[in-house]
Amino acid sequence: MCANLARVQPIVVSNGWQVFPGSMAQAVVSPPLVALLLLGLLIVPWVLVAVYGGLRAGRRNDVAPWACGYGYSPTMSVSASSFDQPVKVSFQPFYWIRTLVDKPFRVIIKISHVALGTIIKFEPVVEKVVTIPTVRVIETAGQWIQALQMGDIRVYCLYIIATLAILLIVIFGGSGL
């Protein structure tokens, strides 16, 4: 559908069992055939063994098959760190960058931890000094202002007349009338 919208031919990348990058001439790989052939070709070594009588010879499981002078022990087993040791040694430059960068990064992490602690310590101060009193003032003022609204219709009329009087005084008081 996208191809139709863009008015281009859809690119074919597979044909039956084969996958290819748009053109068969460039590159082809066929995963199902690979799997089948790899499994199928296992027969060849098996036949070779069978022909030379290897199947009759059998197999013996031994706790210590070739232990000459030393036994197998868990302390001698291959560990993950010993396994990657040769890679670590021969790709030292790459790991060197890691150790080089390690120290400044630790400092940066430490500083940011300190900064975070400070922020946590000072944030409530602002709240106590600024936020909470402001809220309290506004609430009290609100209650006072609320009192204005509560009352009789006669009191309202009195307010209106008082306002009118004040306005008259303000507007005409200065002109000397």
Binding site: L48, Y52, G53, G54, A57, N61, V63
Partner: peptide
Amino acid sequence: DLVKLMKRQEVVSEQ
């Protein structure tokens, strides 16, 4: 060598 080895019994570690 190959033919000789094919005919021999195989010893496998238990692990």
